[in-house]
Design a protein around this nucleic acid. Structure first.
Length: 533
RNA sequence: GCCCUCAUCGUCUAGAGGCCUAGGACACGGGCUUUUCACGCCUGUAACUGGGGUUCGAAUCCCCAUGAGGGCACCA
């Protein structure tokens, strides 16, 4: 192995789903490693015993796989915990912890959380920042509280060169002696990252700017352990359009608002319990903001047919975004390939990517642009590729298109490719192919009931009925004739469309009726005729 | 409160002292095309946060102000 080989990592904590921000961090690390023929490591930072779950780790792996961000070292999808889970590396951390204690760089501290809170309060009253230091007065006595290990930070200015932001300096008086081993015996994040990044030979740490102020702490640890630190690069953050942080709370907030609006309309809580399938007590807790479970938010959103903002990678997948489009869009927040390039394949991204072209300013997540880009991807893609995308989409959703045959799916993809922004939009709009549509009353009134709609429809029915071979070739000339029917060009096809599709919008009638088949088409026309009585 | 970072159209961005009358894309407006909805094509509106320097010349360099964001946990 080349000792100069570049090695990056993505190190999520398994306390929830993979967030788009995390996906971007993973992407940039992946790009950097792949571009330079290096390695990309995936490490699960599960040192928080309370919040970490195996389920969440598995979800992160599958989201990364969906995005196509493959890793060279890391957990095995579907496998048991291996050495890329921090909870499996306690011996290693303890060995280095012991060494720091022996070197007198780490020491025990005994304050209770309450005592620490009180100390912070005092500092705040004095309008001074609270810094825990070994030589500070009033430290708790041994045995008086839980035992943690703290690292004695040097009292000196720490300067480092960030590959994106340039030189960053933090004065000695700003540091404090961070906890490196918690009272439960687990290392804290700060300690575990340093040990692991060193142990795994990570050469470049590319992470979000929210970690910028952690870097001096980590550098202090590297120095104390006698290790060469990796290069650091802090990327700009991504926000919502209103400049708020993108978080799962956006989903719960939207769901609560929808529920409140529903109840305000005069509906009862019980009907919501029924519609959403959420037990009453859980629903109440959620609405009272006692829990932030995004699953409940999703159930409420589905029950009330309101769209919740996508935040996690799987939200975007369920909404019918293609992984390539999502990746492309995410890459362009904070990075510009130059030359006015925007739509980029993975290969092109790899070719154009560099740390120098990553910007410094934080960006906003413009869903409208993502929607446009997703449409571009759908339009440019082959039906074969779209079929794969659709399969991945169907695996996590439950629209009727899920149960369609491959040939039907192909036909639908061909029909909707030019007129849909997402697979979910297509799945929703194509419902009428599979189930009897609920008639759009306004459209029915306008195009079928009023004027000579009924007469036109009867005429159309007769013309269609005479077709023996229900094929595109036979249907095409008939549709041409239908277009000319009636006094206003185009009004007859609308009458037919409403009768057959249940609304005034559908793909072109030729393809639509072809896929629908003769008997269904005629039956729906008959039903519409009957309805006009 | 303290520390750190950032600052070009509504949004993502190009721009490394003269190529800037500031370019591209999304969004928005107008038009063409059209069996609906879209797609597509043409076209328009729209920005260098403010103030001081430096320089023959500043969106670009420096300083200050302002604004925005991040960090200050036994979370990562």
């Amino acid at each position: 192995m080349d000792s100069n080989m570049i090695k990056t990592r993505f190190a999520p904590s398994p306390t929830g789903f993979l967030h788009v921000g995390g996906a971007r961090t993973a992407l940039f690390n992946w790009l950097y490693a792949r571009k330079h023929g290096g390695q990309f490591v995936l490490r699960i930072e599960d040192t928080d015993q309370v919040r970490s779950t195996a389920e969440s780790a598995a979800g992160i792996l599958s989201d990364l796989q969906w995005l196509g961000l493959n890793w060279d070292c890391g957990p095995q999808p579907g496998g048991v915990k291996n050495e890329y889970f921090q909870s499996m590396r306690l011996d290693l951390y303890n060995a280095h912890l012991d060494k720091l204690v022996k070197d007198r760089r780490a020491y025990e501290a005994y304050e209770t959380p309450q005592q620490l809170a009180a100390m912070r309060m005092v500092a705040e009253k004095m309008k001074r920042p609270f810094r825990y230091r070994r030589n500070m007065p009033g430290r708790a006595e041994r045995g008086s509280g839980p035992t943690v290990l703290r690292f004695e930070m040097p009292f000196e200015t720490i300067t480092f060169h960030d590959l994106i932001l340039g030189d960053i300096s933090v004065g000695g008086e700003e540091h404090d002696d961070i906890i490196i081993r918690k009272s439960d015996g687990f290392p804290t994040y700060h300690f575990a990252v340093v040990v692991d990044d060193h142990d795994m030979g990570i050469t470049h740490v590319l992470r979000a700017q929210e970690h910028l102020m952690n870097t001096p702490k980590h550098l202090g640890l590297y120095q104390a352990l006698g290790w060469q630190p990796p290069a650091h690069a802090h990327m700009p953050l991504v926000f919502n359009m209103d400049n708020t942080k993108m978080s799962k709370r956006d989903k719960t907030k939207a769901a609560r608002a929808a529920a409140a609006a529903w109840i305000k309309q005069g509906h009862t809580l019980e009907t919501l319990v029924e519609k959403s399938g959420i037990p009453a007590d859980q629903l109440k807790e959620f609405l009272d903001k006692k829990t932030d479970d995004s699953r409940l938010a999703a159930a409420i959103g589905a029950a009330l047919a309101v769209h919740l903002p996508e935040i996690d990678v799987q939200d975007f997948r369920r909404s019918g975004y293609l992984s390539d489009a999502l990746l492309n869009f995410i890459a362009l927040i904070g990075w510009s390939p130059g030359e006015n390039r925007e739509i980029l394949s993975r290969e092109e991204m790899l070719q154009l990517f560099s740390l120098e072209t990553i910007g410094k300013t934080s960006g906003r997540f413009d869903r409208k642009k993502l929607l446009w880009m997703n449409g571009e991807y759908i339009r440019k893609r082959s039906i074969d590729d779209l079929l794969h995308d659709l399969a991945a989409f169907n695996a996590v959703t439950n629209y009727p298109i899920k149960h369609a045959t491959e040939s039907q799916q192909r036909d639908l993809l061909a029909m909707y490719q030019e007129r849909t922004g997402t697979l979910a939009e297509m799945a929703e709009n194509s419902r009428f192919f599979f189930e009897e549509p609920e008639m759009d009353a306004a459209a029915f009134k306008k195009h079928v009931e009023s004027g000579n709609g009924r007469v036109l429809l009867q005429q159309i029915r007769d013309m269609l009925d005479s077709i023996t071979d229900w094929s595109k070739d036979q249907l095409a000339p008939v549709i041409e004739k239908i277009i000319e029917l009636g006094e206003k060009r185009g009004s007859a096809p609308q009458t037919l469309r409403v009768a057959v599709c249940g609304g005034s919008v559908s793909p072109p009638l030729l393809e639509t009726m072809c896929l629908l088949g003769r008997s269904t088409t005629l039956a729906r026309i008959d039903k519409a005729l009957q309805k006009t009585g």
